[in-house]
Design a protein around this nucleic acid. Structure first.
Lengths: 349, 349
DNA sequence: AGAATTTGTGAAACCGCTTTCAAAGTCGTT
DNA sequence: AACGACTTTGAAAGCGGTTTCACAAATTCT
């Protein structure tokens, strides 16, 4: 079916070129042992002139370690996940470890395949982001290979899991809205099939209850984290005739969708309706108006995950801190001025 | 410094388990040769019960081909590049080839290192996106390994390069603005250190000249593709006292930045000023108002690049089509109603 | 029925590098 | 000068697969 390409110059070629043994070449390559300076130079020169590049597969096979840690993420086309990965790589950069990332595009089949691929590649560790895979399968893999889970806690290895409190973030967002005088706060949820979505919903409810406000189902519509859902969500809200002065969206993308929805209905943000998102995705600072949102310390999370996987590889128990969200106050929320007769409620025209 | 992990079960383990030779196991694994059904089943079962996973490094070394094509991109945290990569992977999915992507974060040092890594990994082909590396170095690599360049044409292997006409896109955008009655059109350029930036500037100028309009340096400010630059750019424009009714931004991110700039200055889009971007990045459809912009067929480009690298691997000359941009008309441009006394009069359409 | 093919199979060589092991050199002591 | 303790070094044995090769067994053809 196809030809091999077995051209490459090997360690032996450069060995003979330099007049030493292959072992010696290997030794200067990894300087794993002292080598006579003269020979070392000869080897270096040979490497140079023959433009030798070690064969990675051979190295890995030879030493039984790949020096790479695999990263499994749900979606390649996502700044959110990539930012975390950035953090991981920042940590790894200072080590001899490389990273190898695989994206499943939210397809569990594909994710399974990719995870197997990482295992087949014998990566030294795996960091998985928001895996959708079966718990037991993951645990099984975690038994064989150092494994860190981000965005999902795996029972039994909670210590190797890293999540931020979605609940807290949603609570902060809602709470803030309440403090600014809003009492009728709508919520477009994230996908309720994933924990993040329901946890954020919970946080929203908690803030409401704590403030003695009722949780009105009329004000809640289920979304799926997509811009579309935001746009559609405000449509639903209006169709219901819901009355609200603020909207908390389950993430920034939905907030942007909602923003467009309001625009279509001729409602100004924040003058007519306040809006808060979740994630602080890039660009959130450049919406009109700049979006108030909940920030997760993504890069920092990545860094810590990187540290944790290194710990695990060294057989040390990782020490994963608690990550908290932070409310980023920008310009999409207005204070509502109370009025005994009229709560400053808005309705589309 | 560290321990090996040499636990794994090998082809021999499953060979003895199934009562056949290792060669046979290999044969059923790749079904490269007919094997007695009974033995085949035995092998399958053994694989199952021992939960065997072939060692990729060993496979690659053994067969001298890695069945992976490397992708080198400038920035991991970018939907733009990732969309192209998506296209590549779509094409690859239907083949036995895997992809391996490496991101340099615009750091030439890093890019060099990563490219070397791909070579060391002996990938069967390389697709490079907007490489910043030295031409000769790239050509040298292209000599050894099938190589496709996206976003930059490499002299000598133009046929292996894939670019879209930035010039055309910018021309389309500017032309459209002119057709809508705009005569004073500002432009915030991309980074002029990269071809895309200057080509878009050229396209802008071309459209202007063609329409008999002067190219006013007052209306041009250099940006760098970042939101910041857009925001800053309109600041500069206003500081100069420049008068314009439309702005063509070198990309969407700068358009968003500019959008915020206008907002800060109390100018409505498109009522007071029209705006067009470039790239159609996700979210561009959800700006306020939805942004008119130039679309590049990213996914399609990726697919074709995937096809091309496969061709190259098969020793066939790839047939890369010409990719054209397309103007996506949304809502950020208004028609100007001319007025002899004051051209600053608009009518949103 | 016997010759000529055509399977199916295991042994062994090989892929390119690392690492163990033992031999050969060095050097410092006594 | 002889001896022991380190250093350097090359040969050789892996690492876990693939593939060639030779051979036995099963088919097919006269």
């Amino acid at each position: 079916m196809s030809k091999k390409r077995r051209n490459s110059i090997t360690i032996f070629d450069i060995a003979s070129e330099a007049g030493v043994s292959a072992s010696t070449v290997s030794r200067v390559l990894n300087n794993s042992m002292p080598v006579d300076p003269a020979k070392r130079d000869a080897v270096m020169k040979a490497i140079q002139t023959l433009n030798y590049k070690p064969n990675l597969a051979a190295q890995e096979l030879g030493r039984g370690r790949t020096m790479t840690i695999g990263i499994l993420m749900p979606l390649s086309v996502s700044i959110f996940y990539n930012t975390i990965i950035n953090g991981i790589e920042q940590r790894l950069e200072q080590t001899p470890y490389r990273s190898l990332v695989a994206a499943s595009n939210f397809n569990p089949q594909e994710e399974h395949k990719l995870l197997d691929l990482l295992v087949a590649r014998k990566v030294d560790g795996i960091i998985s982001l928001w895996s959708q895979l079966d718990e037991n399968y993951l645990l099984e893999i975690a038994k064989e290979t150092p494994f860190i889970s981000i965005g999902r806690v795996l029972p039994g290895i909670e210590k190797h899991s890293l999540v931020v409190s979605n609940m807290l973030g949603a609570y902060q967002a809602t709470r803030y809205l309440i403090e600014r005088g809003h009492t009728r706060i709508a919520h477009i949820t994230g996908a309720l099939s994933v924990p993040d979505g329901v946890q954020r919903l919970e946080g929203y409810k908690k803030a409401l209850k704590e403030a003695g406000l009722e949780v009105d189902p009329q004000l809640i519509v289920e979304g799926d984290f997509d811009e579309q859902a935001g746009l559609f969500g405000v449509g639903v809200l209006f169709a219901r005739g819901a009355r609200f002065t603020a909207l908390f969206a389950g993430n920034d993308m939905m907030a942007m969708g909602a923003r467009l929805g309001f625009y279509r209905h001729g409602m100004r943000v924040p003058d007519d309706v306040s809006l808060v998102g979740f994630d602080d995705q890039p660009g959130a600072a450049y919406t009109i108006p700049p979006l108030t949102t909940v920030r997760q310390p993504l890069v920092e999370m990545g860094r810590m995950a990187g540290q944790a996987i290194l710990d695990l590889i060294e057989d040390q128990e990782p020490d994963l801190p608690q990550f908290n969200t932070e409310l980023l106050i920008r310009e999409s929320v207005a204070t509502v001025v109370r009025n005994d007769f009229n709560y400053k409620m808005y309705m589309p025209s």
